[in-house]
Design a protein around this nucleic acid. Structure first.
Lengths: 343, 343
DNA sequence: TCGGGTGAGTGTATCGTTTCACCATTGGAT
DNA sequence: ATCCAATGGTGAAACGATACACTCACCCGA
């Protein structure tokens, strides 16, 4: 039975009732419907609560009443500012309705993800917000089918029963490329990540489409580099290789992610390429330190806080009829020194 | 009563028992002590569980058995990599014992902190790990007194009933200063934060002590700058002011935090001060991007993951007798290009 | 044949709340 | 005097899973 660690049993409503000389029902009323109790008895009960240091038992409460004020969230990586910023947004929306967030990091491991989903379900959470790891949505779909509300984050939902909040990655890439084209650049590098990630595929589509629509032949104007992972070291190495091989060097570079942009910047400086003079650079995500680099980084900003806020909002309004279930936001370009002007 | 959202009631052990033609006790045995059930009946029960898509109700389970596998943690800022890295450490240790973490961010707001502590207590968590906001430990002490185990993180405990895991900030500052002294520097800037933060006070003590012990008079060799907040913009402005005012410029700078170091680097470059040629710079925390700057930053690394791991370990072993309750780790200096050599 | 041991399964009390049908007491209105 | 409604309060029945004391076969050795 639940005891204080090593100590005596925690006081229950029964103890409070005894101490105050009333029935348990009255104690419960004081706790949940204080207006329906006379001031005198309420005072007595409250005093007893204080004296005994009574603290409600959430398990019993939830078991009986079924009232749920917890929402579960699984993100890909809790160490990435992109996700923590979204978590902030979720939390802020939940706080408005006195709900709380239970945050877990799947580390892109489907097994961990499944474990957390089961945990949430056993807990009987109000709903789950998830950034699915690695394509497979089966677990989430099954969960939804068993009756738990689900909202997808940074991933568009393929089915109408599951809501989703995402960002237009095709459009984001267009923003970046149009910016560079407007500056007069004609030869580009696209430093992209693995094409198993939806984000990378979408951003590539945006790059290609933009070039084509502006009258360029991608096969000619674009050098594509695909990294194994979206991190700085991989980017650093790739850029070194690129500079060594290429004879006619491009003048602009679009990176799929700010971390890769960071690595690229390091490599470029290493090789004596000035930024933005010899090479304009644009990143993606606008993470916290993008503006704090020695050469502040132009980047595509995603409304991270709003994403989280909206997902939580969608979950809490789940029962409302006829609202839109698939939301997509537009990213925004933040221009800083690293792109500059080609003229 | 707990229902699927909008759907029928979730199946319970009773439903499973009926479906499988056994008693509820047997179902419970299959769930918790599968070896004590014959293979034939176990199969029947498991089939029923699958058919009905039965999922345990955690509230009822916890209410009856008192078994707790959740630990609560409150950190100051979930967006700071320093804290998320510690959270990782906590989670890794908890996973070993099949426990899970409920992570909350107090945003340094004592009211939010109190709200989360109450939530944890009502939930009957196994214990709480907290980085206390703003000095006052009263809430934590009261919680402990009511029987919930508590471990302090990045803060030394003033009382024996509460364990703590912290880092020697005095020693960390010494590492940084000794490094700069060894390089031959003789005039220093200490870019510190507000002295209401324990960390800033301790680091200052370390700076002063080190200078003194190496034969310098701090009043002469050291320029102290106290920022209102530990962020890049404040540091940037302060360094601009400093360079304008000072006639005999110091050659080395120690920053209380990597974010302030970032701002300082920006200001220095702005003013044409070369790094590390004209000014060596050392930061604190070794956050993720410290190594990825154009001039990689020398920084004092704290064993963040280990801190979290140890705190969780301490909590899980709470009942063991005679183990040390106040742990302090030593930080480590990571030397990179930004400090270089003064010779 | 009997007593005892063992393995498999049953039935019910229990955890701490909330809910809800139900009583008592009051103070008017009829 | 009688009835009615309102007000404040009671106490037992849930909620779903677990623990535990118990029954019932069945087998074994004496």
């Amino acid at each position: 039975m639940p005891r204080r660690n090593g100590g005596p049993r925690r006081p229950s409503v029964t103890d409070v009732a005894k101490q105050a000389g009333v029935s348990v029902g009255t104690v419960s009323n004081v706790l949940n419907r204080p207006d329906s109790v006379s001031p005198a008895t309420r005072a007595k009960v409250e005093e007893a609560i204080g004296e005994l240091r009574f603290v409600r038992n959430a398990s019993a409460r939830q078991l009986r009443s079924g009232e749920i004020t917890t929402v579960g969230a699984v993100v890909l990586d809790i160490a990435n500012p992109f996700f923590t910023e979204m978590a902030r947004g979720i939390e802020d929306r939940l706080a408005q309705d006195d709900h709380t967030l239970m945050l877990c990091s799947s580390d892109e491991d489907p097994e961990r993800e499944a474990r957390f989903l089961r945990l949430f379900e056993e807990r009987g959470v109000r709903g789950v917000i998830a950034t699915p790891s690695h394509g497979s949505l089966d677990g989430l779909l099954a969960l939804r089918e068993r009756g738990t509300d689900v909202v997808l984050l940074d991933h568009t939902s393929p089915v109408p029963e599951i809501g989703s909040v995402a960002v237009d990655d095709v459009g984001g890439a267009s923003l970046a490329m149009n910016h560079l084209l407007d500056l007069g650049h004609t030869r580009f590098v696209f430093l992209n990540g693995p094409l198993t990630l939806r984000q990378c595929v979408d951003r590539r589509d945006g790059v290609i489409a933009t070039l084509t629509s502006r009258g360029f032949d991608p096969a000619e104007a674009l050098v594509e580099v695909n990294l194994d992972a979206l991190n700085a070291d991989a980017a650093d190495a790739a850029v070194h290789r690129l500079l060594a091989e290429t004879t006619e060097r491009p003048t602009a570079m679009f990176c799929a992610n700010d971390f890769t942009a960071l690595g690229a910047l390091r490599a470029l400086r290493d090789c004596g390429v000035s930024i933005p003079g010899d090479m304009a650079v644009v990143g993606y995500d606008d993470v916290i330190f993008a503006s704090m680099l020695t050469t502040p980084l132009t980047s595509v900003r995603q409304p991270m806080h709003t994403l989280g806020w909206t997902a939580a909002d969608m979950l809490l309004r789940e029962s409302e009829p006829g609202r839109s279930r698939q939301v997509e936001f537009e990213p925004e370009l933040v221009v800083r020194a690293s792109s500059g002007s080609a003229i």
